[in-house]
Amino acid sequence: MSTEWEKPIIDDIRTVESEMLRNVKSRHPLLNEIAMEAVSVGGKRIRPGVSLLAFHCVGGEDKDRIIKLAVALELIHSATLVHDDINDKAEMRRGKTAIYKKYGLERAIITGDFLFVQGFKLGGYMESEEIIGFVASACSNMAESEFLQIDEEHDISTPLETYLNIIGGKTAGAIEASARLGAYIGGGSPEEINSLGEYGRNMGYAFQIIDDILDITGNEADMGKPVGMDIKDGRPNLPVMIAMNLGNEFISKIFKEKSPSDEEIKEAVRLVKDSGALDVARNHAQDFYNKALESIENIASSVYKDSLISLADTIMTRRS
């Protein structure tokens, strides 16, 4: 079932889905099975969606190229999710057992590598140094941000700037690259490419902040994972950071612990909710949302621009 923002590009999204499955087929039966599962778990498909919408916003005509790029970006994203679950020791991914928990660490690492290679192979077919550079830069930034996140785990004094650097590389930069590449392939002007890239970056920041909020306010049925996981793992999370900065010593104590109990996490979640930190975090997300929409004011009106606005609204109001 498509959401409102997908409607103008629903056929393109379906083509991306089928091409993803076609491009992860392996001669080894088990690798084929795991790779298919990794990309079939689904998700919001925001990166390919943003690429496709940016492409159409600037009047792009070469659909084969943008579909190929969208598939490449989503295969690379799927690879990072497989590896992220290993790094984060996550038990679940979107309500299903994490790949490494189901198939073993070694096979999960290999599957992630396989997906990366398949994604970059598609990108290589573009025969464009600019496109390869865009994708490689986004991936490098993701890796650097993962290292920075590990450096900041269980640190109760992570500054906002460092937090933004982390989510800038992990989430915002990837969505920005998707938008810029879509506009570039569509033949957009430098101004259009920059405007759509700014939209992607700002909505990426908003997306991750809403994700942090949902880690406190969501429910397991919608999220596919328990709430409070960032507190349990000591990962930088904006409302948690704000609550600690307000001087809540219990939250700080639990955040620093390597293995807090479920009851301690539950109490820390309650205290974050009661602290007022969620409203402050939402205001940060709203600021990025506003910047995203301001950045595309100069983009010509179309159903595709309307969908970018609808996507921004969906990100701000999502429950999972």
Rank of each mutant, 00 (worst) to 15 (best):
N141Q: 13
I9Y: 02
G95D: 09
S26Q: 08
R201C: 06
N23I: 12
L30D: 10
V16R: 07
A300P: 02
S259T: 10
K225H: 00
G200M: 08
V280D: 00
M229R: 12
V24G: 07
R318Y: 07
N165G: 14
G224M: 04
I150S: 05
G43I: 01
F114H: 00
S40P: 09
R270H: 11
G168N: 02
R319M: 03
P48I: 11
Y304C: 07
E91C: 00
E146D: 07
P29L: 15
G124L: 07
S310K: 15
V58H: 08
K44N: 09
V117D: 03
I296N: 06
G124C: 05
N202C: 00
F134Y: 14
I156L: 04
M1T: 00
Y304F: 15
E144P: 02
S301Y: 12
I46K: 10
L30N: 03
D85W: 10
D262Q: 11
E37Q: 11
G49E: 02
Y184F: 15
A90P: 00
L181H: 07
E146Q: 14
G112K: 07
A285N: 08
V135M: 13
G119S: 01
E146C: 01
F207R: 02
Y199E: 00
K225F: 04
F288W: 04
S259I: 11
P8M: 12
E91A: 12
D64C: 03
M142Y: 06
S128I: 08
D62I: 08
R270C: 02
L214C: 00
L278T: 07
D85H: 11
Y103M: 00
N165C: 11
A136N: 05
M241Y: 05
D262W: 05
S252R: 07
S78K: 03
I150W: 00
M142L: 15
R93G: 02
G173P: 04
L115I: 06
S178E: 10
E192Y: 00
F114E: 09
K63A: 11
D306Q: 13
G224L: 04
D12F: 15
S307G: 05
E161D: 08
G59Y: 07
D211E: 06
L21W: 08
L278V: 15
G182N: 03
S128G: 00
I109A: 09
S157Q: 11
P226M: 11
